[in-house]
Design a protein around this nucleic acid. Structure first.
Lengths: 198, 198
DNA sequence: GTCTATATGATGATAGAC
DNA sequence: GTCTATCATCATATAGAC
């Protein structure tokens, strides 16, 4: 723990370098499409070196989701996000997905793991459920306040709309992967058109 | 070709049995999560027997997408679908996704392949793009007619709305996989609420 | 504490038997 | 034409060197 990502040093330690690379491969190719060999080759070490930091691939996968969950909570609670009006919180959410698009059209964590879900280790499944539940609850709250203050507009319950919007955004990144950026922009444009009062 | 699925016999030939099982595994576990061994064990043959019918896994994968594309075109052109009014065509589409849900919460073809897209062979990628494009074009047409005849209601272009709705449906099956059927029903309920005039 | 050499099994694919 | 025995390679994982 001498050189963590959270410290002030600029050079990440091996553990963090592994996590960063694994995250890239997960979001760009899928969990079952990269191996310890891929990681090791890219990092200039032997596969077993990865096993030291993450005994099994299950451990690595779980660590990846746990880190993302930690990031979600941190992001959500940032003053520059938490203190925004609901319509701008929604835009901040769009910006996160747009940022994925800019990083070589990465899909989001949920979109990367949903299809292969049944092949994932149980702890990873549990963490991903928590991740999605907390994100949905956050957006439901944003939507509820937004409608109450007339800065957002929609029919149905805030919880239902939150589930729908997040599902659409996850899917939009997948469509962008299969085709190009256009459908993503089209979908987000459609969401804005529907949610933001004219 | 002595015993094809399209013939009147009830016992599918080996090739069709392979395709059916591979399709199940693809939609329930993902393309990179099943092997020729899995197929062979289940079918009671050796892995190399699969290689006879589909020389490489790439060939098998491509055949799977091609078959689904053929089915899509057939379904779309069925009188009982093509002759419906737009709102009922939309319901017919929902029924297809609901049917996936009923089959052990299978995701749709697109949802199964999008995350791992970059690891797929080029012909498979091309077929999946065609599949998604044709489905979107079909729905866009349904939506256009629906709005013109006041049986469906939405803002934005029919093409944009079609892209959004299909993306949402694909995502809804993925959410159902990760959690349970509830979010799927919630999302489809939300789509009905928004698209069908009250 | 950190990593390398090595083992064991699964993977996709070939050559050849029936 | 259809499938089986076999292969080379890659997968994850362990035991042990530094």
């Amino acid at each position: 723990m001498s050189n963590q990502a959270s410290s002030s040093t600029l050079i990440p330690d091996t553990r963090t370098r592994i996590l960063d690379l694994a995250e890239t491969l997960l979001l760009e190719r899928g969990f079952n499409a990269f191996s310890y060999q891929h990681l090791a080759r890219e990092l200039g070490v032997r596969p077993a070196a990865i096993h030291y930091h993450f005994p099994s691939k299950d451990d690595l996968g779980t660590a990846l989701v746990t880190r993302q969950l930690r990031r979600l909570r941190k992001w959500r609670d940032l003053p520059r996000v938490a203190d925004l009006p609901p319509n701008q919180q929604l835009e901040a959410l769009f910006a996160v997905y747009d940022n994925h698009l800019g990083h070589d059209r990465r899909v989001c964590l949920f979109g990367a793991l949903a299809a292969d879900f049944r092949t994932l280790p149980a702890p990873m499944q549990a963490e991903l459920r928590t991740f999605n539940r907390e994100l949905t609850e956050w957006l439901a709250q944003v939507l509820a306040v937004g409608r109450a203050t007339s800065t957002l507009r929609f029919v149905g319950s805030p919880a239902a709309k939150a589930t729908q919007v997040l599902t659409t955004l996850a899917g939009a990144l997948q469509v962008a992967r299969v085709h190009d950026e256009t459908p993503f922009q089209v979908i987000v444009g459609q969401l804005r058109l529907e949610l933001l009062p004219s």
